[in-house]
């Protein structure tokens, strides 16, 4: 049994059908990259996995349990599935430490001391032990994104979704964030990421999913898929990047 299973997922925005029947299984410890042109549905697919986009049809199972649209199901789902965003979305009125502590305290009802210990551990892990008392606007983009990763990790999710986590960063800041993601992958975290960093995807991921016009067009081992694309669409997508 896979950790996350998507069956026949359909999603439309008005008349535009963005996801046209997606089947995808994510195993524990797997690192999956979703690639494709903008508008191919990859971000929307990622956002359905933690219920930020409500699906029109299909089934999402996490840990063998079917997720319905009920609020309680959604909250339970989000305890298992963390997310990191392109724009970081840190809470500007809290320090780095408070950003990470907040949810363990408020949602998981952990004591302040427990939450603080976890937050310090996670911020140290992403290399920001010396920036805990800084507010988001005192941090660089790369540092903010690492706080966002620590914040998601503090909830101890089973899966972490990463939505173009380096796309909003200046080029010299990309690597520090990718290093953290790589470290998570090596530690066995289950990761699903939408990314344009093809070299990174190739090096780190176990499975590549190429999306085209709302469908999974091609999928497989990254090395295989990159060096030997089977469809002209993937071939031109990969070629266009080189």
């Amino acid at each position: 049994m896979s950790l996350v299973e998507l069956h026949a997922i359909h999603k439309s925005f008005g008349a535009l059908e963005v996801l046209k029947g997606i089947d995808l299984a994510i195993d524990e410890g797997q690192v999956i990259a979703l690639i494709g042109k903008s508008g191919s549905g990859k971000s929307t697919l990622l956002r359905t996995i933690n219920g930020l986009e409500v699906i029109d049809d299909g089934v999402i199972m996490v840990d063998g349990k079917k997720i319905s649209e009920r609020d309680t199901d959604l909250l339970a789902l989000r305890l298992q599935v963390g997310m990191v965003f392109q724009q970081f979305n840190l809470f500007p009125h809290y320090t780095a430490l408070e950003n990470v502590m907040l949810s363990p305290q408020v949602v998981k009802k952990q004591s302040k001391a427990e939450a603080r210990a976890i937050a310090e551990e996670m911020l140290t892990k992403v290399g920001l032990a010396d920036k805990m008392m800084h507010y988001p606007d005192q941090l660089s983009g790369g540092q903010q994104q690492r706080v966002a990763i620590a914040r998601a990790l503090a909830m101890k999710p089973k899966v972490l979704l990463c939505d173009e986590v380096t796309s909003a960063l200046d080029p010299e800041l990309v690597n520090e964030v990718l290093a953290v993601v790589r470290q998570l992958a090596e530690e066995g975290m289950t990761l699903v990421m939408v990314t344009h960093e093809m070299r990174f995807a190739r090096e780190v991921c176990d499975k590549l999913v190429f999306m085209h016009q709302g469908r999974i067009h091609e999928t497989g081992d990254p090395e295989e898929v990159f060096s030997n694309p089977k469809t002209p669409e993937l071939s031109s997508f990969v070629g266009g990047l080189a």
Binding site: N50, L52, D71, L75, R78, L79, V81, G82, M83, F85, N89, L90, F91, L102, S103, V106, V107, K108, A148, R151, A152, M155
Partner: peptide, 9 residues
């Protein structure tokens, strides 16, 4: 979205 993703109601 960020707070929802952290499980807040």
């Amino acid at each position: 979205e960020a707070s929802a993703s952290l499980g807040m109601n």
